[in-house]
Design a protein around this nucleic acid. Structure first.
Lengths: 338, 338
DNA sequence: AGTTGGCACTCGCACGCTCAGAGTGCCAGG
DNA sequence: CCTGGCACTCTGAGCGTGCGAGTGCCAACT
């Protein structure tokens, strides 16, 4: 279908356009890349590439710019992931290694990603679902009011109020606390439901209602994935977006405030490896002129959350993918150590 | 110094400029406001106002726009706070009343403020210092490792790891927990240091070291004001800033990412009542072309935190101040109820 | 003294025009 | 299949013009 040289031409167009932000013409191409052919030949190739929908011209007789489809081909076939250099890796490590707690890790990661890629960075907090329970604490705040505190192995703490159907004594509470912890401490969230299923049976009839309520609150908290938090940063980089400013930037800022949108965005990354969503490939239409580069990260072998960046479709894909991947790796390391 | 009419002229200029975003001339002024004098007179007044530094002209023979000093006079002397209408108040209340926990309250408040003012909203989480302790929980994670969880009356939870100098038994832990809570539960943070001072003496010599460490960690947590969190929203409203976009917006976005800057910004509001900082009155120079309107809010009579908005100096001050004040009040109510 | 109408003056800005340059498509010849 | 040539197109920068909004000042009026 597309000859080798035409692919090279496309690669050259993408690279030049990313660099200069201006439509690139046939003559400029032959000058900057030694393709070994004349501008006229390149023109023919360009016409072919345009027919196939990989490039387009903003107006007649201007240079060409890549389309989303063109970037897609570029990312899939024409460019690899540019690895970080040694000094860069060291800088990443040094920047992250000083973090004192989970919040700090996430904050630093966002900063780092934004700086490295000069784009908007998004980091999801390590998810609950794959984590294990470190401890469950129950506090009696009032006779019929209990506070449930869940502490995870990633250092995250969730708390919930529980209104009991009947007064619940301190001894019952201590009993429940002890039984609960002996069963679930150290276990994965996904295992918890089975482990506590028969727990109410161990209690007096009058307390069973309360125990059930506490347990269901606990289970709710565990599955409440939608409450996953995330942090974003580097929004100032949006100013480097383009010339037609307010129009482009506004929907992006709006999208960035919708945590739900962002979580869905990151959530799409399934398989291992860096995911790239280009332009209209993004479901949310405010992000139709942006690309999202994301990847999972985790403390062990498994991904517990995602991180990534949002930038203009005209971005340095190899470099960005390299940075995102490297940061994800080092964050994983840091989390594993702590 | 300035005659009554000249003040009226200034007021008219501010109002018109805020409405139209365009420099306002003498003729337009007399047409839109019935000042009862001719354009020529207004011109004289304008010349005087310009001499005093309240207004300026972007270029010769264009209309006038207010200076920071002009806005200052406007806010201090010429305009009141525009109260919210009944329906608006009800909408505010309804929007906030559905919140389920502290995070939710803050999230909703940010949203609300951003929508009402169409500006960038900043809400500080209720501060620890003025709050009272609801409960202190101690968990033994390992023989010489204790987790300290502090729960405040505003529903905020802080946790800290404590490495003990010596192993600490479950009974000692329970003892400390009980003693600690009986002394500090319900007390104000500021009172805690005195209340626990002599606590180590009640323990065996071998445990005293650990007790001291736990206590000092608790005290650290209490005073750790610098870790105050805040939430911002409505950044998309920055796109309505002005024509000379990227230049204005960039430093603002950068400033908004610096929590320290924002906390300092809000922190300046001391006395009760709405605080307004106009243009260059803001210490941070990225915010020199913005105004900050902020106010304290709290559950009881006292302010426990601040909230506010950041917008262009050309903003509707009375309306913004009214919205900020109203939101602060209702948030206070909501916090008091929960 | 304060106010007013008149008047000359000053710019900024929108509009229209031209022109150069970059880029294209196509074609005929290697 | 590549290449040089050629005619064509279109954008964007540069320039000149005129309009209009706005100003400052002054002399006259109340």
């Amino acid at each position: 279908m597309l000859s080798e040289r035409r692919l090279q031409v496309l690669r050259a167009i993408v690279q030049d356009y990313v660099g200069t932000e201006e439509p690139v013409g046939s003559k400029a191409l032959t000058e900057r890349h030694n393709l070994g052919v004349s501008p006229a030949t390149v023109r023919n190739d360009m016409a072919a590439l345009e027919d196939e929908g990989f490039i387009a011209q903003p107006h007649t007789s201007a240079g060409r710019i890549p389309t989303d489809k063109g970037y897609r081909l570029f990312v899939d076939k024409l460019a690899g992931v540019k690895p970080m250099t040694g000094p860069e890796r060291r800088a990443i490590h040094n920047f992250l290694v000083g973090a004192v707690d989970l919040d700090d890790v996430v904050t630093r990661t966002v900063r780092l990603l934004a700086q490295l890629t000069r784009q908007v960075a998004i980091v999801q907090y390590p998810s609950l679902t794959r984590s294990t329970v470190r401890h469950v604490e129950l506090l009696s705040l009032a006779p019929a009011r209990v506070m449930l505190v869940l502490i995870t192995d990633t250092g995250r703490v969730e708390q919930r109020m529980v209104d009991c159907p009947a007064p619940f004594g301190e001894t019952s509470l201590a009993d429940l606390r002890a039984r609960l912890n002996s069963r679930v401490a150290g276990r994965r969230f996904t295992d918890v439901p089975n482990l506590v299923e028969d727990l109410p049976e161990a209690f007096e009839a009058e307390d069973r209602g309360t125990v059930s309520v506490v347990l269901s609150t606990l289970l709710e908290t565990l599955v409440e994935e939608n409450e996953e938090r995330l942090m974003i940063g580097g929004t100032a980089n949006l100013t480097r977006f383009g010339h037609d400013f307010p129009l482009t930037i506004r929907p992006v800022l709006e999208a960035l405030e919708e945590q739900v949108v962002l979580l869905k965005l990151l959530g799409e990354a399934q398989d291992p490896g860096v995911m790239v969503r280009i332009g209209h490939e993004n479901a949310h239409e405010g992000l139709n002129s942006t690309s999202v580069v994301s990847v999972g990260y985790g403390s062990g072998g498994e991904a517990v959350a995602k991180l990534g960046v949002v930038g203009p479709t005209r971005m340095d894909y190899p470099g960005t993918m390299g940075a995102v991947r490297a940061v994800a790796r080092y964050v994983g390391q840091i989390l594993a150590e702590s």
